[in-house]
């Protein structure tokens, strides 16, 4: 962990402005921020661990609890609701055999809901990691999940 974060502080620097880019890079690699990672970042940036946790916990994409390798975020805006978001959640829960908020036992997927992701013209929509998927149907969702399982 120490070495990994040293690489990041070399890249982004050690001042406060580097904090969020560093946390983003850790999440990109490990899906979430472990206590160990946050403590190490605090040490290397010479700020308190509370500062690191306080900042991370503010942002919904900087998870501080364990997440699966692929994080699914289904849009829950009113437009998504109107266009069939419930059906999409039901399909995902069936396919992954988990509920919203949970992670599959093989650690492959975490299923979450999120606020408007900027695709109201093509709802229902979801993000898997950074990739948006739009105009979703149950069939399409199953196909997409199967692709990630390969």
């Amino acid at each position: 962990m120490k070495e990994n974060i040293e690489i990041l502080t070399k890249k982004f620097g050690r001042n406060r402005e580097a904090l969020i880019p560093i946390l983003q890079a850790i999440v990109e690699k490990n899906s979430y921020l472990s206590e160990e990672a946050m403590n190490e970042v605090a040490k290397q940036l010479d700020i308190s661990a509370a500062q690191v946790y306080g900042t991370a916990s503010f942002y919904s994409f900087l998870d501080t609890v364990p997440r699966g390798k692929n994080i699914i975020r289904v849009c829950k805006s009113i437009i998504a609701e109107m266009k069939g978001k419930k059906e999409i959640i039901k399909t995902l829960e069936n396919v992954l055999k988990i509920k919203v908020g949970e992670t599959t036992p093989d650690n492959m997927f975490t299923l979450l809901e999120t606020n408007d992701i900027g695709w109201s013209d093509q709802e229902p929509s979801m993000l898997i990691n950074d990739q948006p998927y739009t105009n979703l149907t149950s069939e399409k969702v199953i196909r997409i999940i199967n692709e990630y399982r390969k």
């Binding site: 406060r16 969020i20 946390l23 503010f58 919904s60 994409f61 900087l62 999120t114």
Partner: peptide, 26 residues
């Protein structure tokens, strides 16, 4: 280019600057 991390309030201009400076988007 700097990236946000999923906080609506950061669209508020001064919250956005707080975020750019590495703080909570308040």
């Amino acid at each position: 280019i700097l990236l946000g991390s999923g906080a609506y309030v950061c669209g508020e201009e001064t919250a956005l600057m707080e975020s750019m400076e590495g703080h909570r988007g308040e």
